[in-house]
Design a protein around this nucleic acid. Sequence first.
DNA 1: AGCATAGTGAAAAATATTTTCGACTGCGAA
DNA 2: TTCGCAGTCGAAAATATTTTTCACTATGCT
Lengths: 120, 120
Amino acid sequence: MKGRGYKATPQRVAILEALAAEQHQSLDEIHAKCPHVGLVTVYRTLDLFSEIGAVRRLDLGDGSRYELAEAHHHHLICDSCGSISEFEGCPIDPERLDVEGGFEVRSHSVEVYGNCAECL
Amino acid sequence: MKGRGYKATPQRVAILEALAAEQHQSLDEIHAKCPHVGLVTVYRTLDLFSEIGAVRRLDLGDGSRYELAEAHHHHLICDSCGSISEFEGCPIDPERLDVEGGFEVRSHSVEVYGNCAECL
DNA sequence: AGCATAGTGAAAAATATTTTCGACTGCGAA
DNA sequence: TTCGCAGTCGAAAATATTTTTCACTATGCT
């Protein structure tokens, strides 16, 4: 279940379950789902998960949020209610990126801002 | 020079000049270019400039950065040295975004991660 | 020039994040 | 089983970041 050499402690399992319950949560929201785990451990564990690629950290302007790294997708952020949703159809073709000057592309992210169906 | 009803104070001019000197600076970098301006004023003024659309706030994972809102462009972030550069050819066609479910698109941003020419 | 009010700065408060360090746990070796 | 250790934990402290408060100042209008 875990990558090489990492222990599956109860705390880590709890945090993984919290992450599985909902995408793009803030650290506080995750911690609220397993309050018996120390806050520092939540920070540490999310760092660890990010490093091994199990979790992606999002910086969408309202503090860090975390999501399980599943299928490639991007985010829709509602200007009025702040809700975050996902869309799968990736509009970027890495091969065709018009990036001059020897920059070697590894990955990308796209954020789309506007208004969600509820707010309209 | 200013929008409706905003006073052109020396502090605001100094911050604008600091912004003009270099794109995507952190708040500290901006403050360092005009140390006689109070830190709180830098925060407040950048908020104001963002609200009136003169400045864009960037959240690229290493804290907020600010840039003058000029031509539409996106960012290239180097994984190894962290440098930020820009590219103009926008790969997104807002008309053709495959965004389901009644989301009304207003704007978007794209970040491309990889390695810059120097680091290669 | 005089006034009303937006704007400013210093300090304090509120938040957020990272570091430190002593204690605990499970595992392999003796 | 007992020892020792590496990895992990959590509380508190240290740092960093952002917001609030409030008395004072300076700008823009008349």
